[in-house]
Design a protein around this nucleic acid. Structure first.
Lengths: 203, 203
DNA sequence: ACCTGAACACCGTTCAAGT
DNA sequence: ACCTGAACACCGTTCAAGT
């Protein structure tokens, strides 16, 4: 059976889960697919293009099922949580997605959906775009660190050589906290700002 | 003259500016320093450790000059802007810093300073840590994309193949907007949330 | 203490040639 | 159309040996 573009993406994600982003090489992927490394280049211009397609597949989970109806802020929060979960579903998923840019179909669809949630609520179109990008930066940053922490078991020891001051203990407590709760907290700070702006525009 | 740890970091940053993160190799850095690649390993355990030291030097700019006195939110905003500027001062600076973790001295000092700004304002210590990390995710995410955009001149063409709908034009307008203005807007959304939380705790 | 020389075990990418 | 074989130009890291 001949290889299709989608098979390469599927194989890439399987290899990603098995070896992580740093272990994802064209040679290993070729072996996994029963092909020499060079053969992949018939399907993808280069490794970056393949990673872009993988990223779009990961992000595709977000728009796979329709967003539940409800208040705009609940819908936006739901989207943010879905993105986080989609990224967490694959090893180094956040790093893969962070390294690619907006032009793939699922990513574009997701961005548009988020913008529409805001404009439907009365938010001006241009500022809605700014809000969506800003939120995405937060989600990516948070999840990248979550996965970095998950990868290295020795994260609890980070800063073990630091003096035991109240401040240092507070910093260490951050990385020991429940990631989901911490994610939600930061997301809500952000949404508070959006709510205020919306109240100004449409009182 | 013999090489010191600090010289390797300085040379690393010079090479980073010249070649970007992907062009920063141990061999090229060795050549730049008048040393074989292997020689660097006497000063740093591996490349990751070197990048960590470079990241801390970049971030060191933030605490180099004392924070002006004033309201807590103005001080926090000033720190965020300083971090952004420090990252922008070196090619791929944001990616370098995002790839390292909290334990280097300047990074720790900066984090502590930010936490103290919040606790001095009456914010509880543990939540202050959450806020500082969340803000850092936003700053890093924003600046990574800013620098990716700066690197590839063809960013304006991204999505040129997309249908010319109102939504797509809005998305494209985001990347064409003034980055500093966009950065400030997102930061303020975030600070609005913090202000609200502070008003709850200490009315 | 600080670095060289040389090797080890890899990379991404290209491209004539095969089927 | 789809892939092989083989090469090109690199990597990070290690380590005996030199000074």
């Amino acid at each position: 059976m001949q290889l299709k573009r989608a098979d390469v993406v599927t194989g890439g994600l399987a290899l990603l889960d098995a070896e992580g982003l740093d272990g994802l090489t064209m040679r290993k992927l070729g072996a996994h697919l029963g092909v020499r490394a060079g053969g992949i280049y018939w399907h993808f211009r280069n490794k970056e293009a393949l990673l872009g397609a993988m990223a779009d597949r990961i992000v595709g989970e977000v728009t796979a099922t329709p967003l539940p109806l409800g208040a705009w802020d609940a819908r936006l929060a739901e989207m943010a949580h879905r993105i986080r979960r989609a990224l967490l579903a694959h090893r180094d998923g956040a790093r893969v997605v962070a390294g690619t840019y907006v032009t793939e179909p699922n990513t574009v669809r997701g961005g548009q959906q988020a913008v529409r949630v805001l404009t439907d609520a009365g938010f001006p179109l241009d500022r809605a775009g700014w809000v969506v990008f800003a939120a995405m930066y937060y989600v990516l940053g948070h999840t990248i660190e979550e996965q970095a922490q998950r990868a290295e078991g020795d994260w609890a020891d980070r800063g073990a050589d630091l003096p035991d001051t109240e401040l240092n203990r507070a910093m260490e407590a951050v990385v020991r906290a429940d990631p989901e709760e911490r994610f939600t907290y930061g997301l809500e700070l952000f949404l508070d700002g959006v709510r205020l702006r919306l109240a100004e525009v449409r009182p």
